[in-house]
Design a protein around this nucleic acid. Structure first.
Lengths: 222, 222, 222, 222
DNA sequence: TATGAATGAGCGTTCATTCAT
DNA sequence: CATGAATGAACGCTCATTCAT
């Protein structure tokens, strides 16, 4: 029974401790990942880029990835040309949005890699992701769906996420909290599937779904 | 803990189990939509309807729901006008495809409602759905995603599925194989999520993911 | 001096004998070159195809090949979709227009291959082409310019034209009227160049330019 | 015959031969457009103007006049704003490029006006122009095509060229080398047409084409 | 003055849907 | 009824031109 091992800090999370401060401390700060092409980017340009990215996230979450680029421009309050200046392709825009979300998750995962309670850290992170996805529906669908292919350009971010999540998983397994016969692939699939499903569930049902998945992931007391 | 949250509103769904009406014995046959307008439909017209529906299933599974209606017509070997005669809207075509899939699942579920081994029946059905979805990728995405909204017109089929699955679930719970604190809503969500995720997984990983979910669903031995 | 060899029938051609009946007896008749894909093409579809082709010729001649496809549709009195149904690409439309012109020329050339006066036939044809190009300006520019590359799909038509013109040339050379040291390539280049230049010349100047070129092409009396 | 049509209006063009003003000794230098607005133009500004003009010539020759202004800026190593500061319109940039080319030709023509061998000078110049155009394809297309209209603003340069070429022609005719019944208009047309055609010809063919045209232009020995 | 970010009209093209054949 | 040609709104994207920095 799941109740045996008190998943205290992770389970009752629908009181949303982590969700209060969303992944990615500043949603879209000025010099976004200066690592890419060393272009400092003028102040106003950076501001516009952020506006577009934010609008894109909202629009795609709300209307699906089929939403028009014009709608993104409108919502961002810029001309269509501006959107295409920053993201020369609709695909690249989608990629950037997804990349940002993944980066946020990677950050959260990394922040937990050294946690004193490895099991708690693992389940906490899992729940955080599912919770966020529930809000940003369509985008999370992309995460699980075509997104995973679309974000080809963000291989780096994905690797980061995989790396950090891998650490979380291994430590939880070493601590005997998570069963030893699952790998990163299984966890990612469960994460994606659960996130996807969580989108249209009420909080209570979501909690129970998570409870099932978590129980399945836990080491059998046997 | 999740265990003490009564899944009240989702559970009672199986209060209306299997509908009396046999609902489409052969997946793609003559007048399955008899529920809407009692038009007998000339033999060749019915044949065309079936051809279109089959083609649509293939096309959308292969190319995604963004595939053009023309492509469906081409694949079905009929004119575009014929497609629109039978399904006046692309959405209605999508709905019909999804409805057919759901009907197939409902049938499978019903076939297992009287099984001697209730637990086996339940997990067997779950696995069957996930396996099928893994092949028909795009459609399964629809199942889990927009599909759930799109199939609004097929409330009857959905009810049938819910009914039969409800029976399967209840019996498995009564047999003590499936934990008592999950309801139909949770199971459907897990089914959808797992199906969705299964699409891009190799068989071995898929098996392991299912194993986790099944373990989570099982009554804890404790 | 050009006057020596009376180029009578060809020279005074500004009295336009040939131009009265333009190349291609019926400008764009219904089943356009049934040789291509054996599709009979419904009556109204053929009519529209012709309307589009005619409009395209006019529009491109008037506004240059940069003219918008919408303008062609407008001028043809059809929807934009109709243009694209018949010519799935702007390039294919350009190609078709050019192809039609070339086909007309090929036809004219062939009609003269058996002429009793080989020299007259050759110069007559040359003049005809230049005269037509003078009217259909921009398109002729294409003929001479990028057109020659653009019409890649109409290699057959070009071969036909080259073949017939080759006959005309050879016979004129055998008759001792055209100098022996020029080949098809030179003649085509002169044809293209002269056509191109003729576009913005008044009739008198055009006649004198042709006179110069013809004199250059004639066998030196020496 | 063409011979008896006096080319009256075209011939008189050489009544205003070579302008007194030396007109741009080095193709791309400081204030050649001094004719328009007597702005001395700061040294660096002049340098930028020249860089842009050079880049534009290359870009348009290489990519056609459809090439983007951004590409010109990039190639010139300046910002897009700078291009538009010097040439407020793409058309004006095209005009300037063409003007420069024409100015170069005018210069070459003037340099030959006093040649000891008037016939040689004339044909030499003709060949030079055709040869240059063969390399700078797209621009030569402009010369012969829209260019003739586009360069409306450079009437001065065109007059210069016409003047000098008029002198070349008249002297060659007076020397009995070029037939007397052609005027400036005819020669310019032949020049344009031949240049245009030369673009896509191999050297040997080009030579033969020129040979034909030159023979046509020569006084018949008879 | 030079820069390059912003703008938006316009383009080629697609596709769900309608309607004459 | 079936057909497929016609339609036109909408989309992704480009580029000449403007304007804040």
């Amino acid at each position: 029974m799941a109740a045996d091992i008190p998943p205290a800090e992770t389970q009752p999370a629908e009181t949303q401790p982590a969700e209060t401060q969303p992944a990615g401390t500043q949603p879209t700060k000025a010099p976004p990942a200066a690592s890419r092409s060393a272009k400092p980017l003028r102040a106003d340009a950076a501001r516009n880029r952020a506006k577009v990215l934010d609008a894109a996230r909202d629009v795609f979450a709300e209307l699906g990835t089929g939403a028009s680029t014009e709608e993104v421009a409108r919502r961002a309050g810029v001309g269509i040309g501006t959107v295409f200046r920053h993201f020369p392709t609709k695909e690249s825009l989608l990629e950037a949005v997804l990349g940002e979300i993944l980066a946020g998750f990677a950050e959260q995962a990394k922040a937990r890699t050294g946690a004193a309670d490895p099991g708690g850290a693992f389940f906490d992170f899992f729940q955080l992701v599912v919770g966020e996805s529930a809000t940003k529906n369509a985008v999370s669908a992309e995460l699980a769906g075509a997104g995973i292919d679309i974000a080809a350009g963000r291989a780096d971010v994905r690797q980061e996420l995989r790396g950090a999540l891998g650490v979380l998983l291994t430590r939880a397994q070493e601590a005997g909290v998570v069963r030893a016969d699952v790998g990163l692939g299984e966890v990612l699939a469960l994460l994606a599937g659960t996130s996807q499903a969580a989108g249209k569930l009420d909080v209570a049902t979501r909690a129970r779904v998570l409870d099932v998945v978590f129980d399945g992931l836990r080491s059998q007391p046997s």
